[in-house]
Every structure is written in C-alpha cells, then in structure tokens.
C-alpha cells in the first residue's frame, strides 16, 4: 500500500546560538574554543559536527618583505552589529546550531590569531558551508581595515588575499 503524499510542514526555524566578540589583545583560539564547546555542550549536548577556521597574521607580505605587524581598525558599533547580523544570517541559512566569531582589533603580530570562526551543526555539510560563507562575508562586509607595517612604514590594504 502506498501512502499518499502529504505536504510537509516546514521545520520550525531554529535560531542558532551566536557569540561574537572583538579582542583588543591577543587571544588563544584553543582556549576560546574549549570554553565555547563547554558552554554549548551544557546547553545542547555535544555537537555532531564542528567546523573551525583560524586565521593568523602571515610573516611575509605580497612583495616578499617581512611584516612587522598588522593594525586592525574597526567602526565601533557597526562592526559588532555587522558580525552579529552575518552570523545570524549564515547560521539560519544553513540551519546550524551555533556560531562563534572572535576577531582581533589593534596591533596584531605575525603568527597571532586575527580571526576565529567556529560553527556547530548536526552534520558536516552545513557546518563547513556555513563557516566558509561566513568567513568570506565577514572579510568583505564587516567594516575592518588592515594597515600592514613593514620596514617601519604602514600601508593601508585595499583588499583581501585570494581565497
């Protein structure tokens, strides 16, 4: 016997848990992640899938010269609001459980973390796709500006490195 097809009600939209924070000082991604995972586990149980991205300041610029530091400027109020809106939009779009963004501001040294994006979801696909989309979105849509210091001179960058 074949059951008749019945239109399915769309699943209730699940608002992901969002954490967004700017760091004026260096942070250690493993420590941040451990705290985030512990909070999520307490609220939702252990995640079946997590995607993580850590971006660090590279030591050499596009001209092959040593980088002394990157200086990150932002627009207080708007930057935080943009990050939160992007996290919510991407999180809802991919149906994930939680999104974490940590981003440095101020002077960041080579090797130090500049951005951490983590996504928790039921499956690897949404976790990875959400993380990738969110990272690209924040690079182009959140008001940050980088000044690269090399040889004692600061140069404002007008774009991002290729994907």
């Amino acid at each position: 016997m074949v059951e008749p097809l019945v239109p399915q009600e769309p699943a209730a939209e699940r608002v992901p848990l969002l954490e967004v924070q700017l760091h004026p000082e260096a942070f250690e991604p493993p420590e941040v992640l451990a705290g985030w995972q512990a909070r999520l586990t307490a609220l939702q149980g252990a995640a079946a899938a997590e995607s993580l991205f850590i971006g660090r300041v590279r030591g050499i610029n596009a001209a092959g010269e040593p980088i002394e530091a990157l200086e990150l400027e932002h627009y207080p109020g708007m930057t935080e609001a943009c990050l939160l809106a992007l996290a919510e939009s991407c999180g809802l779009g991919h149906g994930v459980a939680a999104v974490l963004i940590r981003h440095r501001i101020g002077r960041v040294l080579p090797g130090q973390a500049i951005v951490l994006v983590a996504v928790s979801a039921d499956r690897r696909g949404p976790a990875q796709r959400c993380g990738q989309e969110l990272l690209e979105a924040l690079k182009h849509e959140a008001p940050f500006w980088k000044r690269e210091w090399s040889g004692g001179r600061g140069t404002w960058l007008t774009g991002n490195t290729p994907l």
Binding site: H140, A142, F144, K146, W156, N160
Partner: peptide
C-alpha cells in the same frame, strides 16, 4: 548600516565614509 550614496538624510544622522574593507 550600509546605505546608498543618494539616500536622503535626516537631521541627527551619522554618516560614515568607508574605504575598501579588509577584514578576517
């Protein structure tokens, strides 16, 4: 909030001019 350059403004608005963004 991002806006069009021709958006009519109101008294009290805060307008920011943003050079090319490079975050992440």
């Amino acid at each position: 909030a991002f806006a069009h350059p021709e958006q009519p403004l109101q008294p009290g608005d805060e307008v920011a001019f943003l050079p090319p963004i490079s975050g992440g």
